[in-house]
Write a protein that binds this DNA or RNA. Structure first.
Length: 463
DNA sequence: GGAACTCGCCAC
DNA sequence: AAACGTGGCGAGTTCC
């Protein structure tokens, strides 16, 4: 580790400790109310489930043993041994999986109740329970660890502030609805846009990727959606179906590929979005509608993709093109980087951290990106914390989520804070670290005064 | 009765 | 050649 790397950890710990001590306000009354609602729903839905024929079968299969609808081993045994259904997937230890996708693939409607109860219990017993357990004088004080992840990023615990629900609107409203700024203050969240993609580009310097990152008119995910779905023109804003196609390309192809996944797994993910039947054919009855009310299934069939086998071949070609034609320089960097590690037994990040020991190929390619990306956030946080203390802001840094910072802002200071954030993240940081050869982008989301974190909204910077 | 394990699922 | 990276946490279960 270089001295620079050591300093990052040292000053990082001090800055994060200040955020930990500051804490995040929790509306415990709201949390209690939601806990009651969840408990009521859980009890009702459990009752409904217990009365189904499916559940009565399960009970009788157990003999004298008592049913526990939360027990995955029990459910697995019933589904795959008693009923002899074919597991969609096996667990690490070789048992039939009972995860969401596996249960959905069985097409048993009673299992949807079970899945919904699972979600409600997670909200109550994981997230709300953490608030009740960890709140002190109206605040939670999440810890940020710099000594745990092998990649030299951070983790958070007691409570973990880095995995609060956000994608599911219902879960988001309950959990983030509990979290507030101090009275008469407002939450501000700033986050780097596409940070890991940009940091990866600093390592491999692929010209096509550099163009995607520098030219705001080009869009990698839209381009990939067009290629995957045989669409000439894709305007994500206009048609909901098109937006979903872009999302699916991003979340089920591009990012998994960057993490080291391969096309056969991508097919699984994409099929879910566009409802490719689990058997062999595309379904017309549901799925996404394109222009002229053409279903995605029909559209794909017109382009020669009529079965899972076709789609698999198609995605293999797409993957091949992705690495060999679209990002060949990125691909060559991966190979060089991996070879160099095999020769040396270690590699160094841009930020001065050395990773050594036994690692797999994907690890060696991912760690330097994941680590250095977080260090951009940490450097910015240290600098903003320093200014905050120096200038005696009433505004406080209260949290951090890998590529974002949460502030509890005094409204009169908002404009001033935004100006500092913008300068530190997009000017001072690239100036300090010459290896950053791409522009950095930062997005800003604010909540109105006294509103919870559930209501954050993007703002355009006018500073 | 607690430690260690498996499994599932939330985030980036 | 190989096949999704990093975490935390809860419930159920098994082991000692």
């Amino acid at each position: 580790m270089t001295k620079e790397a050591y300093k990052l950890l040292h000053y990082g710990v001090l800055a994060l400790a200040r955020a930990e001590r500051q804490g995040i306000r929790v509306d415990l009354d709201f949390a209690r109310e939601k806990e009651k609602e969840l408990t009521k729903k859980i009890e009702e839905e459990t009752d409904t489930f217990m009365q189904t024929r499916f559940c009565r079968q399960w009970v009788s299969s157990l003999g004298s043993k008592k049913i526990n609808i939360n027990s995955d081993p029990q459910l697995s045994t019933f589904l795959y041994k008693t009923k002899n259904l074919k597991p969609h997937k096996l667990t690490a230890s070789g048992q039939g999986s009972t995860e969401e996708a596996a249960l959905e693939s069985l097409n048993i409607k009673e299992l949807n109740i079970l899945l919904h109860v699972r979600k409600l219990k997670k909200l109550r017993d994981t997230y709300l329970a953490q608030f009740f357990r960890e709140t002190v004088d109206g605040c939670v004080h999440p810890f940020y660890n710099l000594h745990i992840p092998v990649t030299y990023r951070s983790s958070s615990d007691q409570p973990n502030f880095q995995n609060m629900p956000i994608r599911d609107p219902y879960a988001k409203a309950i959990i983030r609805g509990c979290l507030h700024a101090r009275p008469k203050h407002q939450l501000l969240e700033i986050d780097f846009g596409n940070l890991e993609v940009r940091i990866a580009a600093c390592y491999h310097k692929d010209p096509t990727m550099l163009k995607y990152v520098k030219d705001s008119k080009s869009n990698m995910h839209t381009d990939m959606a067009k290629q995957i779905y045989f669409i000439k023109k894709l305007e994500p804003e206009k048609i909901a179906g098109h937006h979903i196609l872009r999302q699916s390309a991003k979340n089920s192809f591009v990012f998994p590929q960057f993490y080291g996944d391969y096309y056969a797994n991508n097919v699984e993910g994409l099929s879910k979005w566009i409802k490719l039947s689990t058997r062999t054919r595309w379904k017309d009855s549901d799925g996404i509608e394109l222009d002229n009310h053409v279903h995605i299934g029909e559209h794909m069939r017109k382009n020669g993709i009529s079965s899972n086998r076709n789609f698999l071949d198609h995605m293999r070609d797409i993957e091949d093109h992705f690495w060999k034609e679209r990002f060949p320089v990125y691909n060559q960097w991966k190979e060089r980087w991996w070879k160099k590690y095999q020769k040396n037994g270690y590699f160094d990040m841009f930020t001065g951290f050395r990773c050594s020991g036994v690692m797999g190929r994907n690890d060696v390619i991912n760690y330097p990106v994941q680590g250095a990306a977080f260090h951009c956030l940490l450097w910015s946080l240290i600098e903003l914390d320093r200014i905050m203390v120096r200038d005696k802001w009433d505004t406080k840094i209260i949290g951090q989520i890998h590529d974002s910072i949460l502030f509890d802002v005094r409204p009169e200071e908002l404009e001033m804070v935004l100006a500092h954030v913008k300068r530190v993240t997009t000017i001072d940081l690239p100036n300090a670290w010459k290896w950053i050869i791409v522009p950095l982008e930062v997005d800003y989301e604010i909540c109105k005064i006294d509103q919870s974190w559930n209501y954050k909204e993007k703002i355009e910077m006018v500073v």
